[in-house]
Design a protein around this nucleic acid. Structure first.
Lengths: 197, 197
DNA sequence: GTCTATAATTGGATAGAC
DNA sequence: GTCTATCCAATTATAGAC
């Protein structure tokens, strides 16, 4: 056996976990190999063994996170919940993030969106893709709600979905600065009120 | 006369202009005195004469920008425009920002919100204040529109205002990544549709 | 796969001449 | 108020022993 049964989590994963937390809290530019080294308990050089360049690490983290979130989204959106409940559950993902730890974590893609121009090309592409795919999935739920008569609005479902997404990403940054998860929750609920009225 | 009549803009202002542009495009963490030095055409040490520490510079830029924006907001919101037109004009401020230069500038306060935990204390406080004051001003417009029967919604005007604000800040980051000013415009229009239906 | 050691560069910042 | 020169710390990254 090459792994410790108990605490076992391979170093590569531990590095990515630490990096993700740092990105969510401080951003990719403010994250250093030194920070990760201290968090994981290994030397800087060892990180380079797993991720030769910083961009490689950021990209790996971002790819893993996107897979994770889309997994959760698909679970929610493919369920038998009614459309409004689906949007609530989706919003709750953001709220839960703000509740985590020291209450200073944000959505990695909102943070990286702000840092977009200093990211590597493929990471920037992944950020854009995340936005696009999120809106696309949301649009299906909005459309479903519209079709079932649960949502009432003028305009295209696609636009409403984009609105809801922007609201959550922006609201997350704002609520992280002041108000926390409760404030983000209130934002999402207000949006749902407008959709259902 | 101690200033050149023609190109005259004092160095301090030129430094702040360069710093603001860099913050809007890359973020405060990715901005260096070296970058500014090249943009302005002076030496790094000269920047330190005007702004001893980087935090001083960032704070000065942020304070000036907030004053500027609140000036514009007050002009719009104190005008005789109807509430929907006021919100459109407000949204246009964000759209104009995205149209500027290489189309990669964002609202400094959205960028700095993402970098919040690596900012100096007083700068972070200013970011929070900007969010609060923006929402407060927007709330008055939303309330006005509700009172005049132009906006129809359930819930508190304060919440609706917060929603509109989060939508624009988040939408700006997303539209900067893909879609540009037109996309942000569509977002704002969709929100107005929901309010007016 | 992890370590020590070290390179190479850049960052923010200061001292002191002009 | 701007410059040259310099300092010191931090950062990304590599080489090579274990």
């Amino acid at each position: 056996m090459s792994r410790d049964i108990k605490t076992a989590k391979d170093t590569k994963t531990a590095i990515m976990d630490a990096a993700q937390e740092l990105i969510q809290r401080r951003g990719a530019n403010a994250m250093s190999y030194q920070d990760i080294s201290e968090a994981v308990g290994i030397r800087k050089a060892s990180i380079h063994h797993h991720f030769p360049a910083k961009d490689d690490l950021i990209e790996a983290v971002v790819a893993r996170y996107a897979d994770h979130v889309f997994g959760l989204m698909d679970e929610i959106f493919d369920s038998k919940l009614d459309p409004a409940a689906k949007l609530r559950r989706y919003a709750a993902l953001f709220e839960t993030m703000l509740s985590d730890g020291r209450h200073d974590k944000g959505c990695p893609f909102a943070i990286l969106g702000a840092e977009l121009s200093s990211l590597g090309g493929s990471t920037a592409a992944r950020v854009r893709r995340f936005y696009r795919d999120s809106e696309e999935r949301l649009a299906r739920v909005v459309e479903e709600g519209h079709g079932k008569g649960q949502f009432h609005f003028k305009g295209e479902p696609k636009r409403v979905a984009a609105m809801f997404f922007a609201l959550l990403e922006g609201g997350m940054l704002i609520a992280r600065a002041e108000g926390g998860p409760r404030r983000l929750h209130a934002l999402a609920e207000q949006a749902l009120k407008l959709l259902q009225q």
